[in-house]
Amino acid sequence: MNTDKRGFKSILLRHETILVLLLIAEVLYFNAAGRRFGTLDNGFNIVRHSVEIGLLALVMTPIILTGGIDLSVGSMLGLCAVLFGKLWRDAGLPPWLAGICTLVIGAACGGVNAALITRLRLPPLIVTLGTMSLFRGLAEAITQGTDAFTNFPPSFLFLGTGRVAGLPTQAWILLFVIVAVWLLVHRTTFGRSFRAIGFAPEGARYAGIPVERRIAFAYVLAGVIAAAAALTYTARFGTAKADAGFGYELFAITAVVLGGTSIFGGVGSVHGTLLGVAAIAVLSNGLSRVPAIMNTASELSGMLTGALLLLALAGGLLPKLFAARAKQSASSAAAK
């Protein structure tokens, strides 16, 4: 009895079908036009490059389901990356311990968002807009804008560049988070509560749902996972700088909305988000492999992602528009 199974089945199915078709079209086109697109190596490459955005998009999904938003995830990634570097190099902690501390710091950052949103009842958009600047500013202050942490030991870099059982190491982390967030959203009372809050926050409160606790949970989870993304990001680049993950929050939100989650809350799915991430990741990777447009790939991919998003949003509205039209013409015909 999944809430998205029946009432919204038609819409979601449609939406997800469109995304799958889009993804297939992308793969087919780039495979034909691109250079070395369809190789296993490139497949892994796409995964490596989309892990951080994927992680952020996954934890953004429950937040948007509650009708909220978290603009600070990219900055949290940056701050966590810098603090991880600091803990490892300056405090001399071994990478695994520094990593655990970083996850705790991420939870604390998410906790700041959660406290401001649930205690002071400030709108999430404004709160996280503020903490977006705050966290990024802190990261810059700590590194004085120039300091970068490098020369991490190979045992840590393995996280970003190595392989486990044939797959990129961080793919396993992503896989784990996918399964966990999917279960959370689709198989637990937490997911139920997120949707209920997104549809009707007061209604959820009157139903005895601990609205504040649930919302806080979603934001703290986002903090923890942003910290995890900071680790894979640092391990992939071998460097921790203050600008790590700059603008990632917008990619994550784009992927979530592209995946069919309503920005107004309530409706949406984790698998939709994954398809959204895949569509964006394949697009940007594929464009950089088509010789004719290679040089402008990043500009093009930004433009096309934006166009896709708008098309997806408009596409979601079309059935409603047609229904309204049909109703209108029917009633005017009846009036005549």
Binding site: G7, T189, F190, R192, S193, F199, A204, I209, G266
Partner: peptide
């Protein structure tokens, strides 16, 4: 009632801890 949600989900909304032990639906 949360209008957008199924009536079954509405009916269990106040008894989550009891009908869904361990938070699993």
């Amino acid at each position: 009632v949360i209008l957008e949600m199924p009536i079954a989900a509405n009916m269990t909304m106040a008894i989550h801890p009891r009908i869904f032990p361990g938070a699993w639906l």
